[in-house]
Design a binder for these strands. Sequence first.
DNA 1: TGATTTTGACCTATATATAACCCATAATCC
DNA 2: GGATTATGGGTTATATATAGGTCAAAATCA
Lengths: 114, 114
Amino acid sequence: MRKSVKRTYSRYTEEAIRLLANLIRSARIEQKLTTQEVADRAGISRSMLQRIEKADLRCEIGAVFEVATIVGVSLFDTSQSLTTIRREINRSNEKLSLLPKAVHKAHKVVDDDF
Amino acid sequence: MRKSVKRTYSRYTEEAIRLLANLIRSARIEQKLTTQEVADRAGISRSMLQRIEKADLRCEIGAVFEVATIVGVSLFDTSQSLTTIRREINRSNEKLSLLPKAVHKAHKVVDDDF
DNA sequence: TGATTTTGACCTATATATAACCCATAATCC
DNA sequence: GGATTATGGGTTATATATAGGTCAAAATCA
């Protein structure tokens, strides 16, 4: 079953996505690409691109990142480069392999009376 | 109408999201938070969080960013700070106001014969 | 080791996002 | 100014993501 979904977002989340949307729109216009062109290249509809540029929080992250990549907005602005990001992935994989697989909370106290 | 959607993604998009997912999972475990706890705080289901940590490209960007924020993974690693990101938004707004509102391609050449 | 909890993988019903339209207006260019 | 194109804002049918559940296996800890 699925309950009606009404999400709330932190300020930081909202503004991060707002910034990303603005950067995408700027980059698109600077490169003189129409919304239709970018949408086609990204394999999405024009209406979807419009939502992305309006910072709609419910767009698929894959679509947003793909558009960003196409117009040249670097995610993780550490690096635009694929090799660098791969290095980071490897590091995070190593780290993950060292961390515990599950997080256990302290056992519930059975002693409820006092 | 809606056509069946089969997306393709660039390598960079895939790996950027892979990295983000790894960072989220690492941070969650380091802070000894269970999947259920984080899901609750983010207002999403546990199954959704699982997809996020598996780098599923079709999750809502808002949900992903919210989880990242909750476990302390900074988007735009320039800054974890809200004020810095706001400054960036303002700059991008100024920039956008100076850019043309629409991108026009050269007029179609009516002269088709040669 | 045994008790307890977390996780991952699945399933289902339904709310919702999506592509693909259309149209009016705005923006651009000559 | 006039012609042309881009954009924004709708609408609709349908594919799909989602919440919420179950269950077995894995992981943790005493």
